[in-house]
Design a protein around this nucleic acid. Structure first.
Lengths: 207, 207
DNA sequence: TTATTGACCAAAACCGACGATTAGTCAATA
DNA sequence: TATTGACTAATCGTCGGTTTTGGTCAATAA
């Protein structure tokens, strides 16, 4: 007689517990045993579902990225405004959204997705999908006659992401003389001016 | 009878020697005594001219920044093209210029100005002056009727610097899925698309 | 028979003391 | 009075010993 599973949705429980503990104590400072203890299961059980500790984190991050992307996608789908206006809104919104996530609690796994270079590269399709979303809006805008067709391509989408990358963590300072942390109001204002200029630049006739 | 100075232009000599040694061995790995030995003077003499070792480095960096700025300024002054076109050229050129400096030899003090966050903030007026130069061209462009007057201001100048900051070291990747180092050709291409979009965005009517 | 466990292992992290290096000082010297 | 180099205090890197912890697997429980 086969032994029945004691815990049904163990994977989910592990992710949930890890998410909470990582957020509270940080990834490095919570051990796999901590997670197991928190769930009253053996440490070995965790390794039945995840090959490594890091994989737990990656899974959490991917889910967060997925949620964030779905949110943006839904927003884009449901928008009745002009494609270009929607693009502008989407870009501005993602700036403040990420800022909020990062400033709320830097230790949270969600914040890690935006602050850790390594995690970024492990979840790199997050950027690829964002770029795809931008491209989609560019194509729409071209179809609507808002921009020239020649601008609805990968290169322009990438340029938009590069151009706005200074608006995301780690908020690298290649342009400003202060070292102090940027405030939300300030970031928001800068984002508006920059994104407007970029969007406006798309509208022009072909170069 | 006062003792006559043994070395006339000691400050210059120290800067010269430090520049060479820093470039060869790196700032950390060359001691003040190395510099003194290289010039056959006592270590104490160096502290007659410079309060700290770091101040020697800062002096070198400031000079480099000064040279670089003068080069840009001259270029801008002598350009007979339209102010906006000149701005575009200047921005594109500074991208490749910095790339060359950084890739030639990462240990060189000149490279440090562009790669070390700390050094950047110590030479922060480098960025302020670049921004001033951009603003100057914006004002010119407005006077020439190329852009609206309302866009010839500090905020727009800052937006341009933020928008292009991804084109400078440390080449932070908030937009791309590869982790590999960027090539000059690729950087150059990305710079062109991005800067053209930004410049084009300025031309548009008021937002 | 199979899901689960926790003792076990090796490797990495941590610690703290010791020794070496070096930025910066200052009384002695030219 | 310009210059020096021995001196000091603090930092840095090293190294052994100790602890922690990610990951394994034979034993156990159902």
């Amino acid at each position: 007689m086969a032994r029945p599973k004691a815990i049904e949705n163990r994977i989910e429980l592990i992710i949930e517990a890890a998410d909470e503990l990582f957020a509270r104590y940080g990834y490095e400072r919570t051990s796999v045993e901590d997670i197991a203890r928190h769930l009253n299961i053996g440490k070995g059980s965790i390794y039945l579902d995840f090959p490594t500790k890091e994989e737990i984190l990656i899974t959490i991050l991917r889910r967060h990225a997925q949620r964030m992307h779905e949110f943006m996608e839904k927003k884009v789908e449901s928008s009745s405004r002009s494609p270009l206006k929607t693009l502008q809104e989407m870009m501005e919104e993602s700036v403040t959204m990420v800022f909020d996530i990062v400033t709320r609690d830097i230790h949270t796994p969600e914040a890690l997705l935006h602050t850790s270079i390594q995690m970024k590269s492990r979840c790199s399709d997050f950027f690829a999908r964002k770029r795809a979303l931008i491209l989609k809006l560019l194509v729409k805008a071209a179809a609507a006659g808002e921009i020239s067709k020649s601008k609805a391509n990968e290169d322009v989408a990438l340029a938009l992401m590069m151009g706005t990358s200074a608006l995301f963590p780690p908020y690298y300072n290649n342009y400003f003389e202060t070292t102090s942390k940027i405030t939300k109001a300030d970031l928001s204002k800068r984002a508006t001016v920059l994104i407007k200029t970029l969007i406006s630049g798309l509208k022009k006739a072909d170069y």
